[in-house]
C-alpha cells in the first residue's frame, strides 16, 4: 500500500518565520469575529437533534387514555432494570384495553437511556423525549411515576420543548414532582 508522506521544506522566506507568524496572527484575528459556538445555557437552551434519547414519557391515545397495557415488555428489555410495573385490570369497561398499569415507575438514576424500552413496546406507549435538563437534590425525586410520565407527554406532545422555550414560552419541567 502506498503511503503519502508529506514533507515540509521551508522556503527562503519561511526561515525568517515572520510571514508564518503574520499568517497565524491574521488567522486568529479573523476567527475572533466568527459566530460563537457557546450557547448561554439557561437563557438559551440547546435544542437536541431528532431522535435524542432523554426523559421518558407515557403516550396517551386519542381519548386521552394511557396507551400502556402493562405488558412488562419494556421492563424485560431494560438492561438497567430501572422500570417497575404493577399491572391491574383497566378501570374502564368500554371495549378498550383490558390491562392497565397500576404503578409505572422509572428510576432515572438507573436508566442508561438506551431506548430499548421504546423498541420493545408493542403499543408505542413509552417513548424517550428530548428533555435533558431535569435535575434534583434528592434521589426520591428522580423516580418518576405514572402520572409524572403522563405529564411529560402533556408538555412534550406540542413540539420540541426547547424550541418553544427559546421562543419565549414558559414551560416548567418540574423536577421535584415529575
Amino acid at each position: 500500500m502506498a503511503t503519502v508522506v508529506r514533507t515540509y521544506e521551508p522556503g527562503y522566506w519561511d526561515k525568517f518565520y515572520l510571514p508564518a507568524i503574520a499568517r497565524g496572527l491574521l488567522l486568529t484575528l479573523v476567527r475572533m469575529f466568527r459566530r460563537k459556538d457557546t450557547i448561554p445555557y439557561p437563557d438559551i437552551k440547546y435544542v437536541p437533534a431528532d431522535g435524542y434519547r432523554g426523559l421518558h414519557r407515557l403516550n396517551k391515545d386519542e381519548d386521552g387514555r394511557i396507551k400502556c397495557v402493562a405488558c412488562e415488555m419494556c421492563q424485560t428489555a431494560c438492561p438497567a432494570h430501572c422500570i417497575d410495573i404493577v399491572p391491574e385490570p383497566a378501570p374502564w369497561d368500554d371495549g378498550g384495553e383490558e390491562r392497565h398499569p397500576a404503578k409505572f415507575e422509572i428510576d432515572l438514576l438507573k436508566c442508561i437511556f438506551c431506548g430499548f424500552c421504546e423498541l420493545a413496546c408493542p403499543k408505542d406507549a413509552i417513548e424517550l423525549t428530548e428533555i435533558y435538563d431535569y435535575a434534583s437534590f434528592s434521589r426520591d425525586d428522580l423516580i418518576i411515576d405514572r402520572e409524572g410520565l403522563l405529564k411529560v407527554y402533556d408538555i412534550t406532545s406540542m413540539g420540541n420543548i426547547y424550541e418553544r422555550q427559546n421562543r419565549g414560552e414558559s414551560i416548567q419541567i418540574d423536577t421535584g414532582n415529575l
Partner: peptide
C-alpha cells in the same frame, strides 16, 4: 474574553 473569542467561545460575561 479575547482568548474565548478566538476559540469561538464567549468567555466570562
Amino acid at each position: 474574553r479575547v482568548s474565548a473569542f478566538m476559540q469561538y467561545r464567549l468567555g466570562p460575561n
